[in-house]
């Protein structure tokens, strides 16, 4: 029967082994994976500013991006491809707040440069290789 000491060794040993594997995979991901998958060389000041605006306005508090965030407003990973830059820019400062089909977006007061930066960030996100996410619908009723 398992003794307390053996149980302790199982806990400490198992944790150490799997943590080391995890660290190894993390290093490989950051060094070899992410730069390629996300086209990291394309992250310029505009994308950086867009990302900062994305975070500081808690856009993830309503939307998802790469499937992460809240489920109140549309997934935006492919929004650049779906809607194009002009449509996206219209939504930000819309008088009274953009309100498609009854859901209310906050009315922002972005400058033209800030709008461009957010579009640049969304374009960058849309071009990342996300292992097939979001999936293409198998049945297309809208078309």
């Amino acid at each position: 029967m398992l003794s307390k000491k053996q149980a302790k060794m199982f806990f400490l040993g198992g944790t150490a082994v799997f943590f080391l594997i995890f660290i190894g995979m993390t290093v490989d991901t950051l060094v070899n994976g992410v730069p390629k998958y996300t086209h990291a060389s394309q992250i310029d000041d505009q994308v950086r500013l867009g990302r900062h605006l994305w975070d500081s306005n808690n856009c993830m508090g309503c939307h998802t991006i790469m499937g992460e965030g809240a489920y109140y407003a549309p997934e935006l990973t492919k929004v650049y491809e779906r809607r194009g830059p002009e449509y996206i820019k219209t939504t930000f400062n819309f008088p009274g707040g953009w309100r498609p089909n009854g859901r209310n977006m906050v009315e922002y007061n972005f400058t033209e440069q800030e709008k461009e930066a957010l579009v640049a960030f969304l374009k960058w996100v849309g071009e990342s290789d996300l292992n097939g996410f979001p999936p293409k619908p198998s049945v297309q009723l809208n078309k």
Binding site: A7, F22, T29, N131
Partner: peptide, 26 residues
């Protein structure tokens, strides 16, 4: 000990389920 051992055995690499679609290797 056994239970927390199982937790880390599965949970550490289980972090991978958050990494499926965020722009990292397959």
């Amino acid at each position: 000990y056994v239970i927390v051992g199982l937790t880390f055995l599965s949970g550490i690499l289980g972090t991978g389920h958050h990494y499926y679609f965020i722009g990292v290797p397959k």
